[in-house]
Amino acid sequence: PQEEYKKRAKKALKKGDEDTAREALKRAGLSPDQAEEFIRRFL
């Protein structure tokens, strides 16, 4: 589910792994723009 992928993305970002985070967010159904926004907000 979407929440699970978002959790995964946050874990990846904590490790500084933005590529894995983007992949997880893409799987969560976010557009690339939404994924970038999510990452920017998190960092």
Rank of each mutant, 00 (worst) to 15 (best):
P1L: 15
P1K: 14
P1H: 13
P1S: 14
P1E: 14
P1I: 14
P1T: 14
P1Y: 14
Q2F: 11
Q2S: 13
Q2V: 13
Q2N: 10
Q2A: 13
Q2Y: 12
Q2R: 11
Q2K: 11
E3Y: 09
E3A: 11
E4V: 10
E4D: 12
Y5R: 03
Y5A: 11
Y5P: 04
Y5E: 10
Y5C: 08
Y5T: 03
Y5F: 13
Y5K: 03
Y5M: 09
K6P: 03
K6Y: 15
K6N: 04
K6V: 15
K6F: 15
K6A: 08
K6W: 14
K7D: 13
K7C: 03
K7F: 07
K7L: 12
K7N: 12
R8W: 12
R8L: 15
R8N: 09
R8I: 15
R8H: 10
A9W: 02
A9K: 02
A9T: 01
A9Q: 01
A9G: 02
A9V: 04
A9D: 01
A9I: 04
A9E: 01
A9M: 02
K10R: 14
K10P: 02
K10H: 11
K10W: 14
K10I: 15
K10Q: 13
K10D: 05
K10M: 15
K10V: 15
K11F: 08
K11G: 06
A12N: 03
A12H: 05
A12T: 02
A12C: 07
A12G: 02
A12W: 05
L13T: 01
L13N: 01
L13G: 01
L13D: 00
K14Y: 11
K14T: 10
K14A: 14
K14W: 12
K14V: 12
K15L: 14
K15Q: 14
G16M: 04
G16L: 04
G16V: 02
G16S: 03
D17S: 04
D17G: 03
D17Q: 07
D17V: 02
D17M: 06
D17W: 04
D17F: 04
D17Y: 05
E18S: 10
E18M: 15
E18W: 15
E18P: 11
E18H: 13
E18G: 08
D19R: 13
D19W: 10
D19S: 11
D19T: 12
D19G: 10
D19P: 11
D19M: 13
T20P: 01
T20N: 07
T20D: 07
T20H: 06
T20I: 07
T20F: 07
T20R: 07
A21T: 02
A21N: 00
A21L: 02
R22G: 02
R22A: 04
R22L: 06
R22K: 07
R22I: 05
E23W: 09
E23A: 11
E23N: 07
E23H: 06
A24K: 04
A24Y: 15
A24Q: 13
A24L: 15
L25V: 01
L25D: 00
L25P: 00
L25N: 00
L25T: 00
K26Q: 10
K26A: 14
K26S: 10
K26M: 12
K26P: 00
K26F: 11
R27W: 10
R27P: 01
R27F: 11
R27D: 10
A28D: 01
A28P: 00
A28G: 07
A28H: 03
A28W: 04
A28K: 01
A28N: 02
G29M: 03
G29Y: 02
G29I: 00
G29P: 00
G29F: 03
G29T: 01
L30D: 00
L30N: 01
L30Y: 11
L30F: 12
L30V: 04
L30E: 01
S31Y: 04
S31F: 04
S31P: 06
S31R: 07
S31G: 06
S31C: 05
S31H: 06
S31Q: 07
S31N: 09
S31D: 08
P32G: 08
P32W: 09
P32D: 12
P32V: 11
P32M: 09
P32K: 09
P32Q: 11
P32F: 10
D33A: 13
D33P: 07
D33C: 06
D33E: 14
D33T: 10
D33Q: 13
D33M: 12
Q34H: 05
Q34A: 10
Q34L: 06
Q34F: 05
Q34W: 04
Q34K: 06
Q34V: 06
Q34E: 14
Q34G: 05
Q34D: 10
Q34C: 06
A35P: 00
A35C: 07
A35W: 03
A35K: 02
A35Y: 03
A35Q: 08
A35D: 01
E36I: 05
E36T: 07
E36Q: 07
E36P: 00
E36Y: 05
E36C: 14
E36G: 04
E36A: 08
E36D: 12
E37S: 07
E37D: 10
E37W: 06
E37T: 06
E37A: 10
E37V: 06
E37N: 07
E37F: 05
F38R: 01
F38S: 01
F38I: 05
F38E: 03
F38V: 04
F38C: 07
F38Y: 07
I39F: 03
I39W: 01
I39L: 04
I39N: 00
I39T: 02
I39V: 06
R40D: 06
R40P: 00
R40Y: 10
R40V: 07
R40I: 08
R40F: 09
R41H: 13
R41M: 13
R41Y: 11
R41S: 12
R41W: 12
R41L: 12
R41F: 10
R41Q: 14
R41K: 12
R41A: 14
F42P: 01
F42A: 08
F42T: 06
F42Y: 12
F42S: 04
F42H: 10
F42C: 02
F42R: 03
F42D: 02
F42G: 03
L43E: 07
L43N: 10
L43W: 11
